[in-house]
Amino acid sequence: MSFNVLIVDDSSAMRSIIKKALKISGFDVGQIFEAGDGSEALSVLDTSWVDLVLTDINMPNMNGLELIDEMKKDELMKEIPVVIISTEGSEKRIKEAKERGVKGYIKKPFLPSDIKNILNEVMGVDRHGEEKMDSGDEEFDF
């Protein structure tokens, strides 16, 4: 099964890199959507089927944590797993993200293998690319 992914980052260069890393990693990607901040991301989520959101934290207009708060207010959006990809990796930031229900945290700079490992874990896919049967509400260590 392939997953539709929304990449949210104010840097178009970083969105390209994440897109490239996703493709190289071997993670089963379907359609890739892009947004430059949290508000744009909400518009994409309103109109497109997205299985996974990868978001930066530090963005103008609406940052990544505010985006997650907005997603939580919507019955459909709140079910979409969110993974943070950010340069901000202090314990406090990670704790804040975890408290908001974020499923994974990837620190920049990253390797394609970091992305694959974390996304497979979040989406409940084993290392052979098969979906795990009991991947529901697991607690992830990040």
């Binding site: 340069t87 314990e91 406090k92 620190k107």
Partner: peptide, 26 residues
Amino acid sequence: QKIDDTFKEILNMITGRTISQLDSEG
């Protein structure tokens, strides 16, 4: 635009990583 974005991202990653290492309390 692409050159500037890359340039900004390099600095963003360097400083972000530095803060992560030195500022555990955020």
